[in-house]
Structure formats: structure tokens, C-alpha cells
């Protein structure tokens, strides 16, 4: 055991660094999904599509700015602007035109509406951006690499993945927590999450709150995609993968839980990275195994509150 650890301990340390960036991206998507669920009580299958569209939009905008000969540092602005645009346009459109019609429907119909939307948006992405991989890694390149000591050797990591992604994730977490607890709008959202009927009885405009929340959630998914875009090539199908992973994070965390999403994203991100070292065959299964294990012990998720059953 001791010998094994001295040989692999360092490697696992490296795996943790990789897992952090991974966890940060999953968190960004999952937290939006969870926020939306908390208020709308809808699991939005199309959330993954918003991630993908955010990524595509950010890359297109970045490439467009670059083609104008503007300084590459503007690439960072492109990430945020693209996410805001996607969230700000698609979010209200989807909520107003589609979701609003089905709030009083059964859960299965709500789920399927978002599934249908997912199918439509998958093809929309192909029609708009084509099928060839798109890449725009200027923001990642701009930050350069950091040499992390590894025994006698050093291992280069990109500063983007080592610092920026986890940094943005932490900022999002702190910002969201502050917004929900300390601002009036945030408290209203929490009130609707906790007890919609009571909140409405107290005169809260539920329609406004749902619109706002869904837009925020959409923007978070798009931001997750935008942040991921410099590290990966964008191809058809990235949305479908992202959404199942965020489902696992959300269910592990407990529905509606913001901090919980951070912790379970961390567990799942680190778990996957460690699996690449120890048992690469099982890397893809790890998120689901974590989720199943957690739900076995805590049926409402790590931080979920048991719902009272209807009598």
C-alpha cells in the first residue's frame, strides 16, 4: 500500500487538478438546471442544448471578433456576451412560448415538452453551425500554461483550466448564494421554490419569477457552454452528453440545492479523473454510480429535503 501510494500518490494529485476544471464546468450547467427545477418544478431536458448553443455562439462571436482584427483579449468578453445573448433571448422565448402552457400539466408531459425541444434544437444547431468541428481557443491560449512540479519533472497545465474555470465556478456559487439570500428578488425566488402556493398567496407575481429564473438558468447553461468552448471542439451531440451528466449531479445534490450542486459536481468531476488513472474502463460509469450510491443512502439526494407526501 505504501509503495503503491508513493508511486501513484503524485499521479492522483495531478488527477485532482484535472478533476477541478471538469467539476467547474459540470457545476455551471447543473446549477442552472437545479435553479430552474427549484422554481418551475420542471426537469429541463433541453438545458443541454442551451449549453451547446452557448458554446457555439461564444465560438462564433470570438471568431468574428478575431476576424475583425480586434485584440484577442476581447475573446473573454465574447464568452460572457454570447452567454448573455443566448440566455436572454432563448430563455424568455422558451419560457413564454412553451413552458408557460404546460405548468399545470402532468410531469411526464412537461418532461416530454423539453425533450421535444431538445430534439428540435439538436437539428437547429446543425442547420446553423454545420457539422464540421468549430474551434476558438484564443482565450485558453492567451492565459498560457503553468508548470506544476511533479517529482523531478514538471507538468504543464493551462491556466485557463487550472485557475479560470474553477474561479468562475466559485464566483458563480458565491454570487448566486448572495443573490438568493441577500437580495429581494433572490428571496422571492427562494420563497417560490419553498412553497409556491404560499408565495403566491402573499402577492408574489409567480409568472415574473418563473420567467426570471428560467432566463437565469438558461444563461448559466449558456455560460457553461461558452466557458467550455475554448477547451474543446464543438461538434453535434455535445448537448446530449452534458445533460445526462448534469442530471446525475442534480439528483446527487438534491433537487433545488445550489451548494449541493457544487459539492456533487466536485465529487463527480474528481471521481471521473481518478477513475482515468485507476480504472479507465469505468470512468464513464462513475457519475452514475456515485448518484446511485448517494440515493441509496439519502433518497432525497445529499442536501435534499424530503417532501411531505400527499394524503
Amino acid at each position: 500500500m505504501g509503495a503503491w501510494f508513493s508511486e501513484n500518490g503524485l499521479l492522483i494529485g495531478l488527477a485532482l487538478l484535472d478533476g477541478l476544471a471538469n467539476a467547474a464546468l459540470i457545476f455551471m450547467v447543473a446549477v442552472g438546471l437545479n435553479l430552474v427545477f427549484g422554481v418551475l418544478r420542471i426537469v429541463n431536458v433541453a438545458h443541454g442544448s442551451l449549453f451547446a448553443i452557448g458554446a457555439y455562439a461564444a465560438a462564433s462571436l470570438g471568431l468574428f471578433l478575431a476576424s475583425l482584427g480586434l485584440p484577442p483579449a476581447l475573446g473573454f468578453a465574447a464568452l460572457v456576451v454570447a452567454a448573455a445573448l443566448v440566455g436572454g433571448i432563448l430563455g424568455p422565448l422558451i419560457e413564454r412560448l412553451l413552458l408557460r402552457r404546460i405548468y399545470d400539466q402532468e410531469q411526464v408531459l412537461q418532461l416530454l415538452v423539453t425533450f421535444a425541444l431538445f430534439m428540435i434544437l439538436e437539428d437547429v444547431q446543425k442547420l446553423v453551425w454545420g457539422v464540421q468541428p468549430i474551434l476558438q481557443d484564443a482565450p485558453m491560449k492567451l492565459l498560457g500554461t503553468v508548470e506544476v512540479p511533479f517529482g523531478e519533472d514538471t507538468i504543464p497545465f493551462t491556466a485557463y483550466q487550472l485557475f479560470l474555470l474553477p474561479g468562475v465556478a466559485v464566483a458563480t456559487l458565491v454570487g448566486l448564494a448572495w443573490f438568493l439570500r441577500r437580495t429581494l428578488t433572490g428571496r422571492v425566488i427562494v420563497a417560490v421554490t419553498t412553497d409556491k402556493e404560499a408565495a403566491m398567496a402573499m402577492g408574489i407575481d409567480a409568472a415574473k419569477v418563473t420567467l426570471l429564473t428560467f432566463t437565469c438558468g438558461a444563461a448559466l447553461a449558456a455560460l457553461g457552454g461558452a466557458l467550455a468552448s475554448p477547451t474543446t471542439s464543438l461538434v453535434p451531440g455535445i448537448g446530449a452528453q452534458t445533460i445526462v451528466l448534469s442530471f446525475a449531479v442534480v439528483a446527487t445534490a438534491g433537487l433545488g440545492q445550489i451548494e449541493g450542486a457544487a459539492i456533487s459536481a466536485l465529487m463527480i468531476g474528481l471521481g471521473r479523473s481518478i477513475a482515468v488513472y485507476l480504472a479507465p474502463e469505468f470512468e464513464v460509469v462513475v457519475p452514475y454510480l456515485i448518484m446511485v450510491a448517494v440515493l441509496l443512502v439519502r433518497p432525497q439526494g445529499l442536501f435534499g429535503v424530503p417532501e411531505t407526501r400527499r394524503v
Binding site: 415538452v113 425533450f115 428540435i120 437539428d123
Partner: peptide, 11 residues
Amino acid sequence: AWQMILGAVLL
């Protein structure tokens, strides 16, 4: 675009 058509039918 068959996925889109299926999605639209479902909606």
C-alpha cells in the same frame, strides 16, 4: 432534419 420533425410532432 428528421429529429426536428419528430420533435415538432411531439410538441
